[in-house]
Amino acid sequence: MKISYECGPCFLRQAKEAMDLSTDDEMLKMEIMEEIFKFLNDNFKLGANSNSTGSKMHNMIKQKTCCRDPYYREKIEGNEIALKYLPDVKKILEEDDSLENYVKIAIIGNILDFGAFTLDDDIEGVIKESLEKDLVIKDIEEFEESLKTNDKVLYLVDNTGEIVFDKLLLSKIKEYDLDITIAVKSEPILNDACMKEALEAGLDKYGEIVEIGAGTVGYVDSEISEEFREIFNNHKFIISKGMGNYEGLTEINLDDKELFFLLCAKCNTISKDIGVNLHDMLLFKK
């Protein structure tokens, strides 16, 4: 997806957040912010790729602060809080174990920023409220047809915390007797899931976990490894979680794929691009 004017403030907000998590050195943060302004001045323009621009900015911060994983603590907390609420979510699904409900749960995981919640917050209430909402785009019949007619699927995960809820959908997919390959980032970026977090959440119980060969915001086709490109090319059926992967995958021609996006439209740029309202929950085939 291409940059919109609204991406500018978002880049700066993310830059401040990443720097504050990386270092307490105020002078260093000032120097880095000056470089970010220069970088955006050269690269923030009509037609630029949002994922690639954001990835370069975050990697600049990591390099300058010598902090490989600014969101390390947030990722641990996200998984821990999500795991605490997993039994409650399972009880909800026992009452209605439809495929649509499992899809909704996975999308609700995308809505919740688990790192921002405490154990006192009413996460269960948010989950139940979200389950009562309809998917605004609901290609559930096409999705189930792909589950029935393919023998393998590539599942691109998004954030920590969220991946705990992905486990439930992965368990449902297993009922269709598919071989599942789960793709994670190779290097830390934001609070995206890497191999360590995926293993800690227990995703390896549902399929083989592979790395994409890069640490990018979402999927950036030019940055993935040749090993992952072979895996990607060998899968006809692909499930993409979250906005970052949507931004990247819509930049390339994938007409030969059965590609399904599961996400919540959490920003105006993406909601306008898809043609939905802010905060709508979506399951749709590209």
Rank of each mutant, 00 (worst) to 15 (best):
K2Y: 13
S4E: 13
Y5G: 01
C7W: 05
G8R: 06
P9L: 03
L12M: 14
A15D: 01
A15R: 07
K16D: 11
E17P: 00
E17A: 08
A18T: 15
A18N: 06
T23V: 10
T23F: 10
D25T: 04
D25K: 04
D25G: 02
E26P: 00
K29I: 04
K29D: 02
M30L: 14
M33E: 08
M33C: 03
E34F: 05
E35I: 00
E35N: 12
F37N: 13
K38L: 12
F39D: 02
N41M: 04
G47N: 09
N51M: 07
S52Q: 12
T53C: 13
G54M: 11
G54F: 09
K56G: 00
K56V: 04
K56H: 10
M57S: 07
M60L: 15
C66K: 13
C67R: 03
D69L: 01
P70H: 06
Y71Q: 05
Y72H: 12
R73A: 12
I76W: 01
E77P: 00
N79R: 06
L86N: 06
P87K: 12
K91S: 13
I92M: 11
I92N: 02
E94F: 05
D96C: 08
E100N: 12
N101V: 05
Y102R: 02
Y102M: 06
I105L: 07
I107L: 07
G109Y: 06
G109A: 09
N110Y: 09
I111A: 04
I111H: 07
F114M: 10
F114S: 10
D121Q: 08
D122L: 05
I123K: 04
I123W: 02
V126D: 08
K128H: 04
S130T: 04
E132G: 15
E132R: 14
L135W: 06
D139P: 12
D139C: 10
E141P: 00
E142V: 00
E142P: 01
E144A: 05
E144R: 14
S146G: 12
L147S: 09
K148I: 09
L156P: 07
T160V: 14
T160F: 08
G161L: 05
I163D: 08
D166M: 04
K167H: 03
L170Q: 11
I180A: 01
I182Y: 07
I182H: 05
K185W: 04
K185R: 15
P188S: 09
L190K: 07
L190I: 15
C194D: 10
C194M: 14
M195P: 00
K196A: 09
K196N: 13
L199I: 14
E200W: 01
A201E: 01
L203H: 09
D204Q: 13
I209M: 03
E211S: 10
I212S: 04
A214W: 02
A214S: 15
E226N: 13
F228W: 11
F228H: 08
H235W: 11
K236W: 02
F237D: 06
K241C: 03
E247W: 05
E247T: 07
L249Y: 08
T250I: 14
T250C: 11
D255Q: 13
K257P: 10
F261A: 06
L262A: 10
C264P: 00
A265Q: 04
A265W: 03
K266D: 10
K266I: 10
T269Q: 08
S271E: 07
I274W: 07
I274R: 01
I274S: 02
V276R: 09
N277K: 15
D280Q: 02
M281A: 02
L282H: 02
